[in-house]
Design a protein around this nucleic acid. Structure first.
Lengths: 146, 146
DNA sequence: CCCAATCCCATTGACGCCCATATGGTCCCA
DNA sequence: TGGGACCATATGGGCGTCAATGGGATTGGG
């Protein structure tokens, strides 16, 4: 399996580290990803994590418009100012920095959520709630699974 | 990694100095940059900082459009008239001058914000707010990362 | 001559890398 | 089919290194 699927919660230790689930780590190593690009999601209070190609995609999109426009300036503020490269320690853990905590509300536990070609870090309760809301939204619109 | 990414706040000491984050300093030294060029951002209350090639980029941009247009005139006023050179001390700190304080509202702490090929100095709260506004803007326009 | 910017050195606290332990699941074999 | 050895993952903690910060000393310009 080469995609990030399912979700799992892990505990943050006394030094502020948390283990990335093994299934996610294998997807990363299969893809030859050594350094992770993390950014603040544009919609949810979650940190999105994937390979450096995620950043490349954003930068291509910005390059397409006038680099001096206010819109591009705003976009860079989110993509560059809201993004960071991190690497895992030898045991496959990452530091839960204030960068992550402030944006997600994460305190003691991290919910890892697969999103296909990337995954996300959530505060566990917030994830459960957002999922419920999403489910309700689809139901009320009478949508069927595609 | 050769780009300025993420954001981090550092404290100004009693002498008015502040440490440039280590990750930003490595990007600078990797690029062989010894002297920094600072100027006021066109949109936000932030000071942009980068190598001298930043100045070149703006001059190329100005050359590309009508040199007598109001935009080019404004740009020159800000870039040429509003820019200063600064250099770091042996520990990698810079002086927070009134030029920086007046334009940004910085008092006791400086938020360093990566912008790809340069970085910015913000008043911490102002940055958080500007980012939130930018995020809301994208959300309401229905834009997605990809 | 004085103030302020710069340099140099010391401290401390955070983060990195390393190894140890626990826990739960799987496989093998009787 | 049940028990036990084995293994992988998650987690805890020691320790060295480096970054961030504070303060004294020195220099140079006004």
């Amino acid at each position: 399996m080469n995609r990030f699927l399912s979700h799992a919660a892990n505990r943050i230790d006394a030094k502020g580290r948390v283990s990335v689930p093994s299934v996610f780590r294998s997807v990363l190593s299969d893809g030859g990803v050594r350094e992770l690009y993390c950014f603040q999601d544009f919609v949810f209070p979650a940190i999105s994590v994937g390979g450096p190609e995620l950043l490349d995609r954003f930068e291509r999109q910005m390059a397409a418009e006038d680099p001096f426009s206010p819109e591009a300036n705003e976009m860079s503020l989110l993509v560059h100012g809201g993004g960071v490269f991190v690497k895992l320690d030898p045991e496959g853990r990452l530091m839960v920095t204030d960068f992550i905590r402030d944006f997600t509300g994460i305190l003691t536990d991290v919910m890892f959520v697969g999103r296909g070609d990337y995954f996300q870090l959530w505060e566990p309760q917030a994830f459960v709630k957002a999922q419920a809301v999403a489910r309700e939204g689809r139901k009320s619109r009478g949508l069927r699974p595609d």
